[in-house]
Nucleic acid binder design. Structure first.
Lengths: 225, 225
DNA sequence: CGCGGCGAATGAGCAACCCTCATTATGACT
DNA sequence: AGTCATAATGAGGGTTGCTCATTCGCCGCG
């Protein structure tokens, strides 16, 4: 095999890539159910049956499209936070990047929920794994450094972080206005810091009312049984 | 028309209800694409063609299922916050209710995103409208009363609120553990308050009396039963 | 009581589409 | 050139959403 010639492996990979690309386009334009396998095949320059050599069925092809998107997202985010140094700055960079990126590729992002059927560990949702890990690492580092409170549960804060971003993007797209990301970033960071740094800045001296309420809540639970 | 006899209108409404109920069951069990119109028809006790007299197509039927779910959610939330008095407590009640309810009906909730295709004002997403309005009203009242800072943008905080809840539920379901809602509520309220009461530190003193009174009132109500 | 009229309901049939599989093409290695 | 394993093909099968000509059920009127 000479240089310039494609090996068998490369050819197969190339083909798979062409299929996924064609599928991405089709799914973006028409959505999961309206996109036709015949069209995708034609657009990728292969026969319909060939699709099924690379992907078990339409759903698997769809999953591949979504997976590729998440990989790209994870890659970009890793690069985006590399410039920042402190966990605080990294969090901000991640917020900004995620917001911008999800806004840009919203349709693709939304598609990734269509599959979402079985809430399984290794299901489609596992595509996010890599992305979410970035956040977890930042928080872990912050706790190590003493920037964040060690009693903070990273998984909870993670939900705050990504949930807010997704919903904010949805809102932005619905109002249709020119997107204003900065207010979202500011609010998000305010919220995240309030949770990650309790007792700081907000100087939360033990709050009498909170403690009494908590006591009452305990009583209420007791009474319910 | 006598009592006990069904009028024509009532019969039609009843039939529509039966169809939607059958459809809900089918969609829950099998998902949007795997659920078959023939099954739904049989389960509802009508012919297949009849479905199309009530709903234009499968998607419209699906949308009706989702809409009904959101109506029920909105109803329940309205009742849940009615007991609370201060905006702070209402927010807490809404958080707790939403969390519990979405957790309970997660499949149905998730289904409501399958449709989500066109990000339109009047699309399927408009089902949430009523629900979201509840939140907005609470915040508006809080701003009126001076409990919340007037410069807060309710729409942003809304995304924080519901986004966090949805993602938290997703996490809870993925870990599969016994659901611990309380930590989520606490974090959520911490975050929301940090945003709604900027720079307020612990100067929440004026609130203490009110909150203690409310807590005691709850106990009193409890004791009455 | 019979009858005509009208909206509601039916279900066989059509068209669309995913997927299979028997057949053919490809190209690496003797 | 011949052989063989692997990749690719696309016509056909089976399923399913949806339509439409037909039938049903109810009501008022003569």
């Amino acid at each position: 095999m000479t240089v310039g010639t494609k090996t068998k492996r490369e050819k197969l990979a190339e083909r798979e890539d062409a299929i996924v690309s064609a599928a991405t386009e089709a799914f973006l334009e028409k959505g999961m159910s309206a996109a036709k396998m015949a069209e995708i095949a034609a657009s990728a320059g292969v026969a319909e049956g060939t699709l099924y050599l690379y992907f078990k069925n339409k759903e698997a092809l769809f999953a591949a499209v979504v997976a590729r998107h998440w990989e790209s997202l994870t890659e970009g985010a890793t690069a985006a936070i590399a410039k920042a140094d402190s966990p605080d700055d990294q969090l901000e960079a991640l917020a900004r990047y995620t917001l911008r990126r999800i806004l840009a590729d919203w349709k693709l992002f939304e598609l990734s929920f269509v599959l979402h059927y079985p809430v399984k560990e290794d299901g489609v949702g596992s595509d996010r794994r890599g992305y979410v890990r970035i956040f977890d690492q930042i928080v872990a580092r912050g706790i190590d450094r003493g920037t964040f409170a060690p009693e903070a549960d990273p998984r909870l804060v993670r939900d705050l972080f990504f949930g807010t971003i997704e919903y904010a993007v949805r809102s932005i797209l619905q109002t249709g206005k020119n997107p204003k990301l900065e207010p979202v970033v500011i609010m998000l960071l305010t919220a995240v810091r309030a949770v990650l740094k309790p007792g700081q800045g907000q100087a939360r001296t033990p709050d009498h009312a909170e403690r009494i309420e908590a006591a009452v809540t305990r009583l209420e639970k007791l009474a319910e049984r």
